[in-house]
Design a protein around this nucleic acid. Structure first.
Lengths: 350, 350
DNA sequence: CTGAAAGCGCTTACAG
DNA sequence: CTGAAAGCGCTTACAG
């Protein structure tokens, strides 16, 4: 059970040569055995491996074979349950295939993202990246390094509008439109948004769709009905506080992601604003306890784990070379989950 | 800006040999230049590196030098803001030293933890581990592989009570005692716990200290006042629901971590139980919006980032060999953050 | 200051 | 089926 006694950092790890010597065979045979080929001396090799505690050197294999069998998942906010779900989805795909996943968090910062990606080069065979911004050239760096990348939630633009990197998106516009239509159907006309950063794809698309959807209903949006919350909890809270201070308070708010919605809810609670009686609220991205709140939250939901699964599938096919077609753009559908956080605009101050 | 045009996965990356050839020097000189030594041909080398886009092969360096310059951070629940804070703290230490951090999530499962750690061997120089359980022998596996480990929140036991692995703990018992004393001081005697898993150090220590603290006040705990929530949000919700169904409902609840506290709060909200009027609640580990709730939450807080910082310091010193003393146990203090979720036991059913 | 060479630990054609 | 040998891309004593 305990195995051989080791010093603090253990003795030098056993190499394939040690195993070969002990088993009285060549390193070739050990290598073959380890890779599942049939060898006559299997029992002796097995014994040697077990007693020496041999594990092939990852660095040596990587150097020889040119692949690390590791994939990086880089996301802007690891504490966001959406990304946790994406990771779960992605892992269901890789675990069968012998790949190890490493996670990294860029803290919603393109600068951090660059550092993180830079550190990944040479350590991984591919990157699943949910970018912090649309504007950086970090993906270019990865391409130069010959690393396959698949984006989550980033739309890429070439001159002719074709995707130039694989990407798995959701229908941000459709989802947002459904949310706004829902509010308008309830009779709202004073509708505000707590928006994500306009530099990110989901931030930009949801914000644009918000304006378009309202315009389609002949409703115009005052400037101060657009407040930015940076996709962060605190940002959502502060953005909502600003909305509440407005002279012409909105009667409904669309919040562009789950984390900001949490912040918004806190602001409403503190201010004593009742949902949905005083204010209707609708969020983008579901959350584990959205349904358990005093006013169960109506949200635009999306298939989060599927997004991770699909993206990882794509990435793996690129890495292995099974797929060398033109970059793909996959768009998943959203669905409106109606609960109880929306009602008619009851309160009507001047 | 765009650099040379590449094919899909780029051409074969430039090696140190390519650089040497182009600069008309030996690979030794290139290597020396890259490592900051003075060489006469610096400009030519620099030019060659830039135009070829040379980056040293990480695998080759690792194989040659025997170190990966990578450290793994393995935690049971990456969405728990506590671990996010630990990661932040740890990163402040490593970023200065050229180390890359990779994250991994074990989903509170010892089995997953084993798979994850197994995958890390050979890929990292050390592991910062917040174990899912006290009972597995995963650390043994790491020791066998010669990997330095530092624990977060796991107390290790040798026969003679000495720590056998470095570990950074918090004073779970002191913190819990403070929480219970606080409730008792408010007049409570019917005090329940939503506990973490007894197989984990923080779960076990907080649960034991809960019993001890109440015993010290001459208060006994009915069996059904102890409900387990597995350190998960849903677990906390369900545990709290069970408490609410009790014939002799508790008047106060101690919840053993932040994530479960969130769940508990949801259960109370759904059940229409007012905090603190109907029930007092006190949590372990602060949360970004604990202070912003309708009833701002009283909690036992701890220096989360410091815990990460201290642990990473220790780990780095082990990795570099600067520290080869006996395994260390560092215990950080907790502090009671008094807000408004505790009051006297007003309601008193039979 | 500089270069030739050995060697880190593997895998895999190439002969046998 | 098996072994000897080359080579993956570096770093670093060792000579010069």
């Amino acid at each position: 059970m305990a195995g051989p006694r080791n010093g603090v950092n253990g003795p030098r790890a056993a190499t394939i040569g040690d195993v070969a010597r002990r088993a009285g065979v060549s390193v070739s045979s050990v290598s073959r055995y380890v890779h599942g080929e049939h060898v006559r001396t299997a029992v002796a090799i097995e014994e040697a491996i077990a007693t020496l505690g041999f594990r092939p050197s990852h660095a040596a294999q990587t150097l020889k074979l040119g692949r690390t069998m590791t994939i990086a998942l880089v996301v802007p906010d690891i504490t966001n349950p959406f990304f946790a779900a994406v990771v779960r989805g992605a892992e269901t795909v890789t675990s069968q295939q012998g790949y190890t996943i490493v996670l990294a968090d860029t803290d919603e910062s393109p600068a951090r993202e660059r550092v993180v990606l830079d550190g990944m080069i040479g350590r991984v065979d591919g990157v699943l990246l949910a970018p912090a911004s649309e504007d950086d050239d970090n993906p270019l760096m990865l391409r130069r390094a010959g690393l396959p990348v698949v984006f989550i939630d980033r739309r890429t633009h070439t001159a002719d509008g074709e995707p130039d990197v694989d990407t798995v998106l959701v229908d941000n516009r459709g989802g947002t439109r459904a949310a706004i239509d829902h509010l308008v159907a309830h009779g709202h006309r004073r509708i505000a948004i707590v928006s994500g950063p306009a530099e990110s794809t989901p931030g930009r698309e949801r914000l644009e769709a918000f304006g378009d959807a309202l315009a389609a209903h002949g409703i115009s949006v005052p400037d101060d009905y657009v407040q930015f919350g940076g996709f962060r909890e605190q940002g959502g809270r502060e953005a909502t506080e600003r909305l509440l201070q407005l002279r012409d308070r909105p009667t409904a708010v669309f919040v562009a992601n789950n984390v900001m919605t949490l912040g918004a809810l806190q602001a409403l609670l503190v201010a004593g604003v009742q949902v949905p009686d005083d204010l209707s609220i609708i969020g983008f991205d579901d959350h584990s306890f959205a349904g358990l709140l005093a006013a169960p939250l109506t949200v635009v939901d999306r298939p989060m784990e599927e997004q991770g699964r699909v993206a990882m599938d794509l990435l793996l096919n690129r890495i292995t070379g099974r797929d060398d077609s033109a970059p793909r753009r996959i768009v998943l559908d959203t669905v409106l989950v109606e609960r109880k956080s929306c009602a008619g605009p009851h309160s009507s101050p001047p």
